[in-house]
Design a protein around this nucleic acid. Structure first.
Lengths: 290, 290
DNA sequence: GTAAGTTACGAGCGACGTAAAAATG
DNA sequence: CATTTTTACGTCGCTCGTAACTTAC
């Protein structure tokens, strides 16, 4: 019918006002564009331009045609974007979590359970995660409480307990437990991607100085190299630090113990079945699934 | 971006189910279509088809893509149609009338006044004409009464008086005037494209037999060749019939005398100016316009 | 003279068709 | 064996760029 390049030419002309400017924009020679526009007129069997010897401009038909061209090209662009996004969504599972530990632990499971899919993950706030789950940005999210919607299913996964790691020389090193407020005012090392834990730190230790570290491995090195307090949890394997002559002291605040719940759409149940079996096996190691 | 022929190919495939059927529909060879579809996948960077050795079908991406293709192609089709229609409207003046005489008389005036435009005309009922005027189907309409809308302008044009033409031997031939009801029951010749006059005939002469004739010139010959009554008006030049030894007797009914009004949008005033000046000159031959 | 548009001519890419192969029922 | 899809190869058309011409400011 009408080749796309003709519409592109027309639109470029409308947006620039001259054939030469438009042709430059399109990385095309003037004559090529000139001929294209004549061809478009031929095809439509309508004049689109007012031609003076040395000047050319859209007539009323042309204005109308350019409007249509814009609409059509927009729609084509949308087509490409939407199809690519849809395809990507068919080949990726996106995991959203309110904290890093579930991502560290669940991503490898997803990767090997769905070997042909890409696993993406993000840390975000609870509201954002729930919205993302409903609009299919995420297929699975992890929160510290179950979801209440009828369309969602929640299964309890694991608990995470916070520890503070200290060098033996630290004044608090001999304690069997500390409250966060006791650490207020200290200078501490902190991983930056910790989701809701960050809010907790700000609330309980507003006076503390946190040396934020974006790189997880770099943080580990800093912990080893310094005498500063740092946080750890039961879900994180930091054998280095244990060997490195640090003591782990449990945080006593009730907020420092959370239960994680995997939440997903009931619709996804079939597809996620293989993953869910593995999760349930972890939670109840005694129960064997066939 | 995406060439149109690729979208056409995809759509044809969806509508037929096999590449071979689709290619035939497109007057194209199978291999050409096969390659096109691969190219489309290349461009989108997405698989659109499930391919078995001997069979090919759309996958979910493909279904989505085909939907978009249909939408885009529809819009292109609409673009072509609308632009052509718009262009035609810019080059034609369409005259609508409730009776044939105004068309016969005004069309030549319009043709020579707007030599570069096409003049089209139609006979229709009053309601249809007014609707057509507002939606730009017509630029000028002729009714037997002025219009009342604020956006419209009406100017009185000419009057038309109905006559019956009879051979001298006819019983009514000696009268100086007749009422239509006196003709009820007779067999008469009638031109078919007479607009509202037809309704009048049906109302006043329900018992008459009308021999309808679609061709105006053919009607003239029939009138000459037969002794049947026929109608004429002051606006029609039928010199042949006058010479042919027929008598013209005025119809006395008040409905047989009508005034015609040219009605058009005030917006059109500028464009129609040249035409309107001619009309006014006809109505008031004494008044000269510069 | 510079900048814009058109016309003319030749070149190269790409979409096409034909032919042949592979696979399925 | 007929039908369908894919691969291979040669051809032709269509769009492109370069060059030359015309016109206007």
């Amino acid at each position: 019918m009408i080749d796309t390049y003709l519409l592109e030419g027309l639109l470029a002309f409308r947006n620039t006002g001259t054939l030469s400017a438009a042709s430059e924009k399109l990385h095309l020679s003037q004559p090529a564009l000139s001929r294209s526009m004549r061809k478009l007129e031929d095809i439509l069997d309508v004049t689109l331009f007012e031609r003076q010897k040395n000047k050319i401009s859209l007539n009323e038909n042309g204005i109308m045609a350019a409007d249509y061209a814009a609409k059509i090209l927009d729609q084509e662009k949308e087509m490409v974007e939407r199809i690519r996004a849809y395809d990507r969504s068919r080949h990726t599972i996106t995991l959203g979590s309110c904290a890093p530990a579930p991502i560290f632990m669940l991503t490898p499971i997803l990767s090997q359970t769905y070997a042909d899919m890409t696993i993406a993950s993000e840390i975000n706030g609870e509201d954002t995660l729930l919205r993302g789950l409903s609009d299919n940005t995420y297929q699975i999210i992890v929160l510290t409480q179950p979801a209440e919607s009828d369309e969602l299913e929640s299964i309890r996964w694991q608990s995470e307990h916070l520890y503070i790691t200290l060098p033996p020389a630290h004044p608090l090193a001999g304690r069997t437990g500390v409250h966060l407020r006791e650490l207020n005012g200290q200078t501490m090392l902190l991983y930056s991607q910790i989701g809701f834990w960050y809010d907790l730190c700000m609330e309980k230790m507003p006076e503390a100085r946190f040396l934020m570290q974006d790189e997880y491995t770099a943080l580990g090195e800093l912990v080893q190299a310094s005498a500063l307090p740092a946080f750890s949890t039961n879900l994180v394997r930091n054998d280095d630090e244990r060997h490195m002559n640090r003591v782990f002291i449990p945080i006593l605040d009730s907020e420092a113990r959370v239960d994680y719940y995997c939440i997903f759409k009931k619709k996804s149940n079939t597809f996620l079945n293989r993953f869910l079996m593995q999760i349930r096996a972890e939670v109840n190691p005694g129960v064997k699934h066939k």
